[in-house]
């Protein structure tokens, strides 16, 4: 008899389709996870990029350091920065795909 008072066991996909409060919770958690990660990565990269020119203004002697005849600012801005951007993007793609996999497993269970 207790089973009759419990809400029927509905799959989460149906909650989302019917836009119930529970469905909204699923959607909001997905959006929040993706957005938070995206903004965090962007903030870290932006801070790093914005700090670089200031670094050389605050400490001008760094600008005259040379590595294999190339001045440090040229090396950092011209070469090193690209692998860093690529690494950040790679991590972002992996993490976003993992979040989507977890979300799919969550809403597909019965």
């Amino acid at each position: 008899m207790a089973a009759a008072t419990r809400p029927p066991n509905r799959p989460p996909t149906r909650e989302i389709d019917e836009q119930t409060d529970i469905g909204e919770v699923y959607m909001r958690s997905l959006l929040r996870a993706q957005l938070r990660r995206g903004l965090t990565v962007l903030a870290v990269v932006a801070l790093f990029l914005a700090a670089l020119p200031l670094l050389f203004t605050v400490e001008p002697r760094l600008a005259s350091v040379r590595i294999l005849t190339v001045p440090l600012p040229w090396l950092l801005l011209g070469v090193t920065i690209y692998p860093l951007l690529l690494a950040a993007s790679w991590w972002l793609v992996r993490a976003a795909e993992r979040t989507e996999r977890d979300f799919a497993e969550l809403v597909e269970r019965n």
Binding site: L35, G38, L39, V41, L42, P53, P73, I81, L92, A96
Partner: peptide
């Protein structure tokens, strides 16, 4: 001079923003 190296960095970093917020 060296300040211009920000142009290509920006041209590339724009895709990171695209990736993080828009692509999928």
């Amino acid at each position: 001079g060296v300040d211009i190296l920000w142009y290509p960095v920006g041209y590339t970093a724009g895709y990171l923003v695209l990736l993080a917020l828009v692509a999928a």
